[in-house]
Write a protein that binds this DNA or RNA. Structure first.
Lengths: 200, 200
DNA sequence: TTATTGGTTGAACAATCAATCAAGTCAGCT
DNA sequence: AGCTGACTTGATTGATTGTTCAACCAATAA
């Protein structure tokens, strides 16, 4: 199987779906960008949706190398790793004039009645992201209240990321992103103070 | 001007854009649902995007009667009004099998390179929502820390609403919505405790 | 050499899309 | 009655969509 062509299609589709969305990206958009012809694409993928599935599988399989490793380079503290992750999205917004938000979140809201396989893959990507944050919280468990629901807080942090991107992009104002993160930071500070009280 | 037809088109488009999204709703979808013919639609609207603009203007103009009045019926406490607002979205998710989320948020993430008029109208709708929440926080100002950034917290609450809907819809699990709201409630409780400390 | 396999080419197709427009209807005004 | 202008009808257009397919190519194996 010539995976070079297949891979080129997936990489291009990842980028196009990210910037333009799924419905606004046509097969011919992918073909012209990849210099691949339609018959070749349909040799590897039964249809457009299967390209989307391959894209989501790639995100799922590459969360470490594609996202976390880069965001956490040189960051050791588990709590700061959370904010470093958020800061990665902030940088994307700024360096692309608010064009690149969260590729998964965009798809999640754009596809209203998705095929079950698509829905489950989006869900899986969210859960992997939440897992990564939850692991940070586990690493920092000694700083947070003993009865903290770490899963719920990790889901909450995903929520903040998605909502902050949505608002900053719509307003084209990074202040909205920053203020959201500030409030999150304050919440974490309050939780850590709570733990300090427990310990004393 | 026969606003009956025009209004019927707008109401139908509001619903279709909400459930199916903008790109997945065709003009003929609107025509068949309204029993209006294409020439009639194009008599009132120069194009599809102008229908979207009219929809967004309607949301903007009807936030009180269309959203807040209903959500706040019988709720007096300003903090509880915030949670009543969130609960309205929760009910929509549950009663429609996760089909109806936030109509504005869906459009915000679906439309990637929107016309400036569209982007500004989505932004206006967000700001009106934030204004409403901020007013609740002002009403309850005596319960929160004196130096609270109420605007930032109101934006944060919009973020939670949008993120909670996104996750609950994707997972088709209301638990994700509820846990997000729980964490918000805990944050507000912590803030109120802070104020209680200030006062004592 | 011949056959097979995996991959490529690019014209073509049917369906659907947003949008157009000439002809028509009807109510209100002069 | 006759005119005007707002609104309606619905067939039609041209562009774009996702998809198909028969012919073709190149490398490997028999």
């Amino acid at each position: 199987m010539n995976s070079a062509t297949r891979d080129k299609i997936i990489r291009t589709a990842m980028d196009l779906f990210w910037v333009k969305g799924y419905n606004s990206t046509s097969i011919s958009d992918i073909l012209s960008r990849t210099q691949v012809h339609s018959g070749s694409l349909y040799h590897f993928f039964p249809g457009k949706q299967d390209v989307l599935i391959a894209v989501l599988e790639t995100y799922r399989d590459e969360i470490d190398v594609g996202l976390l490793d880069h965001a956490w380079e040189g960051v050791e503290d588990p709590v700061e790793k959370i904010f470093a992750l958020l800061n990665g999205y902030r940088t994307h917004l700024l360096t692309t004039d608010y064009q690149y938000g969260c590729p998964i979140g965009s798809l999640a809201l754009e596809l209203h009645e998705p095929d079950p396989r698509v829905r489950e893959l989006i869900d899986r990507n969210f859960r992997n992201w939440v897992d990564a944050v939850e692991n940070c919280l586990v690493e920092a468990a000694d700083r947070f209240p003993r009865d903290l629901d770490r899963r719920a807080l990790a889901e909450f942090i995903l929520t903040i990321m998605e909502g902050a991107i949505m608002q900053a992009r719509t307003a084209q104002d990074i202040g909205l992103f920053d203020r959201n993160v500030d409030v999150l930071r304050e919440h974490l500070d309050l939780l850590m103070k709570q733990r300090a009280m427990q310990d004393s």
